[in-house]
Simulated scan of single mutants.
Amino acid sequence: MSRLAKGLLILAILSATLGCFTTENTLGDAPVVACGFFSGLFLLALVLGRKIKFDPVLR
């Protein structure tokens, strides 16, 4: 996992935690939207960072 993917995962977890444990509705839906945004970027970073090896010789 790349450093970018790790950072986005941490940001997604922190924003989800903030959204779950905030008792008052002072922030609105911002933590939930941020969690979705960071989760999407995390998945994109995982897909782009994956190195696919192709072996043309069938064994």
Rank of each mutant, 00 (worst) to 15 (best):
residue 1 M to Y: 13
residue 1 M to W: 14
residue 2 S to R: 00
residue 2 S to D: 00
residue 3 R to G: 03
residue 3 R to P: 04
residue 3 R to Y: 00
residue 3 R to L: 03
residue 3 R to E: 10
residue 5 A to M: 09
residue 5 A to Q: 10
residue 6 K to E: 08
residue 6 K to M: 04
residue 6 K to H: 06
residue 6 K to I: 08
residue 7 G to S: 14
residue 7 G to F: 11
residue 9 L to H: 03
residue 9 L to A: 07
residue 9 L to F: 04
residue 9 L to Q: 10
residue 9 L to P: 01
residue 10 I to N: 05
residue 11 L to I: 04
residue 13 I to A: 06
residue 13 I to S: 01
residue 14 L to R: 07
residue 14 L to T: 02
residue 15 S to G: 04
residue 15 S to H: 08
residue 15 S to E: 01
residue 16 A to C: 07
residue 16 A to R: 01
residue 16 A to Y: 07
residue 16 A to Q: 00
residue 17 T to F: 13
residue 17 T to S: 03
residue 17 T to P: 01
residue 18 L to I: 02
residue 19 G to N: 08
residue 19 G to Y: 03
residue 19 G to T: 04
residue 19 G to P: 10
residue 19 G to W: 07
residue 19 G to C: 00
residue 19 G to H: 05
residue 20 C to A: 02
residue 21 F to G: 04
residue 22 T to M: 12
residue 23 T to Q: 11
residue 23 T to K: 13
residue 23 T to N: 07
residue 23 T to A: 09
residue 24 E to H: 14
residue 25 N to I: 10
residue 25 N to F: 15
residue 25 N to R: 11
residue 26 T to L: 14
residue 27 L to Y: 04
residue 27 L to Q: 10
residue 27 L to R: 05
residue 27 L to A: 14
residue 28 G to H: 08
residue 28 G to L: 09
residue 28 G to T: 01
residue 29 D to I: 12
residue 29 D to T: 10
residue 30 A to G: 11
residue 31 P to V: 08
residue 31 P to D: 00
residue 32 V to Y: 14
residue 32 V to E: 07
residue 32 V to G: 06
residue 32 V to M: 11
residue 32 V to T: 10
residue 32 V to I: 13
residue 33 V to S: 05
residue 33 V to Y: 14
residue 33 V to M: 12
residue 33 V to N: 07
residue 34 A to V: 05
residue 34 A to G: 01
residue 34 A to Y: 09
residue 35 C to I: 06
residue 35 C to G: 07
residue 35 C to S: 15
residue 35 C to Y: 09
residue 36 G to P: 05
residue 36 G to D: 07
residue 36 G to C: 14
residue 36 G to W: 07
residue 38 F to S: 02
residue 39 S to Q: 03
residue 39 S to W: 03
residue 40 G to C: 05
residue 40 G to D: 00
residue 40 G to E: 00
residue 41 L to H: 07
residue 41 L to C: 15
residue 41 L to V: 01
residue 41 L to F: 12
residue 42 F to G: 06
residue 42 F to A: 03
residue 43 L to M: 15
residue 43 L to S: 15
residue 44 L to N: 06
residue 44 L to F: 13
residue 44 L to T: 03
residue 44 L to D: 01
residue 44 L to I: 10
residue 44 L to R: 02
residue 44 L to S: 00
residue 44 L to A: 11
residue 46 L to R: 14
residue 46 L to W: 12
residue 46 L to F: 15
residue 46 L to Q: 13
residue 46 L to D: 07
residue 47 V to C: 00
residue 47 V to M: 02
residue 47 V to H: 00
residue 48 L to I: 05
residue 48 L to M: 08
residue 48 L to G: 06
residue 48 L to P: 09
residue 49 G to V: 05
residue 49 G to F: 01
residue 49 G to T: 10
residue 50 R to F: 14
residue 50 R to H: 09
residue 51 K to Q: 13
residue 51 K to M: 04
residue 52 I to S: 02
residue 53 K to Q: 13
residue 53 K to V: 10
residue 53 K to E: 11
residue 53 K to G: 03
residue 53 K to M: 01
residue 54 F to H: 02
residue 54 F to W: 11
residue 55 D to L: 11
residue 55 D to H: 13
residue 55 D to V: 04
residue 55 D to S: 12
residue 55 D to I: 10
residue 56 P to E: 14
residue 56 P to C: 07
residue 57 V to H: 11
residue 57 V to T: 11
residue 58 L to R: 14
residue 58 L to M: 15
residue 59 R to Q: 15
residue 59 R to L: 15
residue 59 R to F: 15
